[in-house]
């Protein structure tokens, strides 16, 4: 192809998108994590539990929640091992994403850590661990129990 032959143009105004997500309505959940506790909101009016936690009830539309401490023990409902990751997770592969069901009935999606490939099975006992990333950030992860 002739080098004078223009076929495309690369845009010169890249966007850097960083979002600031408010956590005020679920701050009890985040603050409890720093104390190593898992708390789940329960609607005071209609008794519906929510995970992911939320401050407004999708069922009866009340905004009054009580925050109940849950046991972190559960069972593995489903999982997958990721070998191909999005750009921002490229240095983390392989990793295992799992949905576990707590003994008190709520389901949570998180990484399942310390797994041996080929040895984990749906139905295994797992436990949610709260992990400190830095002074302000905590994450939860499943581990075999």
């Amino acid at each position: 192809m002739n080098s004078d032959d223009v076929t495309s143009i690369q845009t010169q105004h890249p966007l850097k998108l960083v979002y600031q997500i408010p956590l005020g309505k679920t701050k009890t959940f985040w603050n409890s994590m720093s104390k190593g506790k898992l708390v789940i909101p329960k609607c005071i009016k209609c008794s519906t539990y929510y995970f992911p936690p939320q401050g407004d009830c999708s069922n009866c539309l009340s905004s009054e929640m009580e925050w109940i401490e849950f046991s972190t023990e559960g069972k593995l409902e489903v999982f997958t091992h990721l070998m191909v990751a999005p750009g921002s997770f490229m240095d983390k592969v392989p990793y295992t994403v799992a949905i576990g069901k707590l003994s008190q009935g709520i389901k949570i999606l998180a990484w399942l850590k310390d797994v041996e490939y080929g040895k984990i099975k749906i139905g295994m006992n797992i436990k949610l661990h709260i992990k400190k990333i830095n002074e302000t950030k905590y994450v939860y992860e499943w581990r075999l129990n």
């Binding site: 990751a85 983390k92 994403v97």
Partner: peptide, 21 residues
């Protein structure tokens, strides 16, 4: 916030969970 921010779930991963189940 609950599936991507800390856990990097992809679309193949969502359907892989359906396949596994």
């Amino acid at each position: 916030l609950w599936e991507f921010e800390n856990y990097g779930v992809t679309f193949p991963a969502y359907y892989a969970m359906y396949a596994n189940a």
